[in-house]
């Protein structure tokens, strides 16, 4: 009985195997494997919006984060995927593709020639909705540092974000507005939530600001852009995973009403970069081709 079962399985497998993939002929083109982020990701939304994609092909593999995308695309030589520009691609064996001739870089994003870009936005809890008055003042001070100081801008760009440094001032001039900075804040914890793409810039600024602000603690719980608004003003704002500042790697949607927040805005720009294996022959790609590939109508890279 068992033997019959096993024989049956083997037969199924053999038919399954042969219907999958090419037969080793050098001339048959390699099928491209598409990788995408999970549905809570702001990077995914920015990417799908930029290539005007309706429904993604069901052969796509979902990865959990920017880092996971790099790991998976790295080990699959027929892969195509997308990451944030702030991700460090050096030594990963991957290369970024030019979009219709434009090289993704800080300059092309700032002068608007590279089209796949998106803002890193933030939103806070409503005024008075914080665990304590001190925490609220600390959040205000942090956002002042992040948005208006040169030091903050430097940290963000060192971590890969794109900022326009004109109009920013030294933090020493802003310090005076925040009396919270003159005391020990090690009993306060800032909780953040939302996009995983903002993680490197967010962590760098929190780490740099902490010793300037009485050594407050912080907990980053980044799980995807749609959780950013939810956990400060939306359906989860009083739940298990509530946060003080929510981040998204896209603009906030119409359903995400930020008018009640204490503070909201954009702290830097980021771009979405299409990545492939560095040995691939393809160096440039058009938005239409990307749409065809991700919708499943085109199955090869070229």
């Amino acid at each position: 009985m068992k033997k019959i079962l096993i024989l049956g399985l083997v037969a199924l497998l053999l038919t399954g195997c042969s219907s999958n993939g090419s037969t080793g002929n050098e001339e048959t083109k390699q099928i491209v494997n598409i990788y995408t982020r999970d549905s809570a990701s702001g990077t995914r939304e920015a990417f799908e919006k930029a290539i005007d994609l309706d429904v993604i092909s069901n052969t796509a593999i979902e990865v959990a984060s920017n880092g996971d995308m790099i790991t998976k695309v790295k080990s699959d030589e027929n892969a195509i995927g997308y990451v944030s520009l702030s991700t460090d691609l050096l030594n990963t064996g991957l290369k970024a593709l030019n979009i219709e001739g434009v090289v993704p870089s800080v300059d092309t994003v700032l002068n608007d020639t590279y089209s796949m870009k998106r803002p890193f936005s933030y939103v806070t809890r409503a005024a008075g909705d914080y665990k304590s008055e001190e925490l609220q003042q600390l959040v205000v001070a942090y956002l002042d540092y992040l948005n208006n100081s040169i030091e903050g801008a430097l940290v963000v760009s060192a971590a890969g974000g794109i900022v326009d440094t004109s109009g920013k001032v030294a933090f020493s001039t802003l310090k005076g507005n925040h009396s919270i900075l003159n005391q020990d804040n090690s009993h306060l914890t800032i909780n953040t939530a939302g996009s995983t793409s903002v993680a490197s810039t967010l962590q760098a600024t929190l780490e740099a600001f902490s010793p300037m602000a009485g050594n407050f603690k912080f907990t980053m719980n980044q799980t995807g852009s749609s959780d950013g608004y939810k956990r400060v003003l939306g359906s989860e704002k009083d739940g298990v995973n509530q946060a003080d500042i929510g981040f998204a790697s896209r603009d906030f949607s119409d359903q995400e009403d930020v008018t009640s927040a204490l503070n909201s805005g954009i702290y830097c720009i980021d771009a979405v970069v299409v990545i492939v294996n560095e040995n691939s022959e393809v160096n440039d790609i058009t938005l239409d081709t990307l749409n065809a590939i991700y919708a499943g109508t085109q199955t090869t890279l070229k």
């Binding site: 099928i31 494997n33 593999i61 998976k72 080990s75 699959d76 030589e77 892969a79």
Partner: peptide, 13 residues
């Protein structure tokens, strides 16, 4: 194994 058989995979997964 897949490349020996000439079959493409999703990076081994």
């Amino acid at each position: 194994i897949a490349s020996m058989l000439g079959v493409q995979t999703y990076g081994g997964t």
